[in-house]
Nucleic acid binder design. Structure first.
Lengths: 141, 141
DNA sequence: CTTAAGGTTTACGTTTACGTAAAGGTTATA
DNA sequence: TATAACCTTTACGTAAACGTAAACCTTAAG
């Protein structure tokens, strides 16, 4: 058996790692996204719980609601072998992938436009370069 | 002068095109993201307004708040030639691009995991294929 | 003329995702 | 023993992004 599976975390440890508040983590549990063991009344998170939290936060970064994140989490774990369920999952996954593709296009478009805007800004700055003080240092792509 | 610039839309026309409610469009105006001309009390949207709405919706799809969308819109139009303003814009653009890069990584990771989940589903379905009814038709990547 | 189809403002309601106390329990250390 | 430093539940508060309804104006068509 693998000992690395027995790593556990308190709620504030987990909160610190992922830069969220304990309140948020409890909220996710309220919504059925997390189900940590208890030790008395204290919540004990294992590695799987930690990964689930990571999935939640990633979903959020991609603009999904918590309900949608729950749907995502369920997709990764089709504990079912019911035929209808599986096909339901497949359909859900397809919808998700379509959404992601759409987001990819959005990102590409936005990146191009940001680059254009950036170029314009830099050009405008260059025009003033002559009369101005020492050239500014600026992180570039 | 270009006549194609004189195309206009009513609020419900625009709403129909982008599948949002007039209420939402008015709300965006309230928040300072849109500033259509008026014809009496009626709002008249031109092509630039339409593009702005498109930007708003794209920003939303990427999970940005309306305030952030406003920031984005302003980036595309640095009407300013103030040096400090320009450098402020550049910094904002860099932050945006960093966010987009992060989202790209999130999407890639999620796509891979969805594909894995899909494979598992399909495998589970295949196991039942023998005993089951006609093979299901299913859209594939 | 009136009825329908659009538009307007004003304003209260709703959902989501937590924030922010309040009130209290349980170790560990000074 | 008391005082932090954690944790717990309960509950009210809040910002964002609209939905929904009311009450009203204004053409266009029958």
């Amino acid at each position: 058996m693998n000992h690395s599976e027995s790593v556990t975390y308190s709620i504030s440890e987990l909160a610190k790692v992922y830069k969220v508040t304990p309140r948020a983590i409890r909220f996710y549990e309220d919504k059925g996204l997390l189900n940590p063991k208890r030790e008395g009344s204290r919540r004990i998170y294992n590695n799987k719980d930690r990964v689930t939290l990571k999935l939640i936060l990633r979903g959020k970064r991609l603009g999904f609601s918590l309900d949608e994140c729950l749907e995502l989490i369920n997709m990764y774990d089709p504990a079912t072998d019911n035929r209808k369920q599986l096909q339901h999952f497949l359909a859900a996954i397809d919808r998700r992938q379509a959404l992601l593709i759409h987001q990819l296009e959005d990102i590409k478009a936005m990146q191009e436009e940001l680059t254009t805007a950036k170029t314009r800004c830099l050009a405008a700055l260059a025009k003033q370069q002559d009369t101005a003080s020492p050239p500014p240092k600026h992180q570039n792509n």
